[in-house]
Every structure is written in structure tokens, then in C-alpha cells.
Amino acid sequence: MIPSRSPFDPQNPLEGRVITTPFDKVLGWARKYSLFVYPFVTACCGMEYMSVSSAHYDLDRFGAAFPRFSPRQSDVLWVVGTVSHKLAPLVRRVYDQMTDPKWVIAFGACASCGGPYDNYATMQGIDTVLPVDIYIAGCPPRPEAVLDGVVKLQKMIQESKQVWK
């Protein structure tokens, strides 16, 4: 991104040291590579979440592995696993406590649509109570699918209009 440095010219002090770019883009670039996550881990998908975040698959490469267990400090809510009706108000409350800008990833089939559980206890997808940005398919999704989801979210963040005031 930054071109090689030219010798300093006092007549033209900004030459070679400044690039111009829309503010939205640079903010999006900063935001997408410093995602603090809130892992709301409930069920089986947590096993794959553990795999993804440890050394083998290394989510840290994407700048999106740092878990913050306070919703107020986090940007991305990962809903990892089945959400039952008993749990739904709590997920909603965690989401409400997060500060803007915030994104939600529905990790796995259960969080996306209820998965194999179509019964009295299980919510049919978390998008019935909160807005979801990325759905990751799979029961549970393979780590590669999770990484793909993270990259897609980063692309989405980069391309979206940045709210910053």
C-alpha cells in the first residue's frame, strides 16, 4: 500500500509519504482486521470453534480471534450452537449490550435455522430475534468453512458504509 520512500524534499514535503483514499475505506480496513469477538458458545459447534481458534487453523491470522467476554468491548457476536427458547432472551440481551458497530455470525446449522432440532424447545434460527450478517453452514461447520465465513464478513465490513460519528 505504501510506495517505497523517496528522499525527503523540503519543497514538496508530502511527496511519496501520503496516500489519498476515501475515509470510509481506511476505516473499513482498520475495522475488518481488528475484530474483537464475543463467543457465545452453547453446544457442539464449540468444539469446532476451539479447533479454529487454536494453533492448527489459527483464526488469529485474520485478526479475528481475540475473545472479549464483555459484550461492551466486542464487535462480533459469534452465536456458536443451538439456541433454545430459554436462552433466547439472554442472547438478545448480550446483543443489545454490544456497542455499534456490531456484527453477528450464526455459526452452524442450529444458529442459522434450527438445524436438526425442529421441536418445542429450540429456536428456529437466531435471526428470529436478532439481525445476522453471516450464516456459516454445517453441523458443525468445518474449520475451513468458518475461516471462509470470517473472510466474507471482513469483505462485507470493508464494502459497507462506515458509520463513525
Binding site: G81, T82, K86, L87, Y117, N119, A121
Partner: peptide, 11 residues
């Protein structure tokens, strides 16, 4: 407990 009750038996 019960936050992950997803009706194993009923399913």
C-alpha cells in the same frame, strides 16, 4: 441448567 435443552427424546 436447561439452557441447552433441545428435546433429545422428543426428537
Amino acid at each position: 441448567i436447561g439452557y441447552l435443552h433441545r428435546a433429545f427424546e422428543k426428537s
